[in-house]
């Protein structure tokens, strides 16, 4: 899979819109609405197809329009993170959250 860009390289790319942030880059307390969940097919998702990862995220409620807030971070490298997602709480690794783009709302940041 040498032709694929590693996920870590992508994580550094800043979104052009300052009001948007990748969930992998979000900080504790960031809140907003999910703007897009498009898992990039040209990136190596460590053995999982982009389509499969996208469906798993969608099935757990990471869908456009869902309200999200980062409520906890792990002790080492601030990873994994726990988010409040509509009425539930979900934990995930930052690596798997790269393609969830959050439109920040309120006074966050």
């Amino acid at each position: 899979m040498d032709h694929l860009t590693p996920v870590s390289a992508l994580a550094a790319d800043p979104k052009s819109d300052p009001g948007e942030v990748r969930l992998s880059q979000a900080r504790l307390g960031d809140r907003g609405v999910i703007a897009s969940v498009h898992v990039r097919p040209d990136v190596d998702h460590r053995g999982l197809s982009a389509d499969e990862l996208e469906r798993r995220l969608l099935e757990l409620g990471f869908v456009e329009g869902a309200v999200l807030e980062v409520i906890h971070e792990g002790a080492i490298g601030r990873d994994p993170i726990a988010v409040r997602l509509d009425d539930m709480r979900v934990a995930l690794r930052r690596k798997d959250a790269v393609d969830i783009v959050l439109r920040l709302t309120g006074d966050a940041r």
């Binding site: 053995g47 798993r56 757990l60 979900v90 995930l92 798997d96």
Partner: peptide
């Protein structure tokens, strides 16, 4: 590597 996606 399986994603770590879990409801709390």
């Amino acid at each position: 590597v399986e994603p770590f996606l879990m409801e709390l």
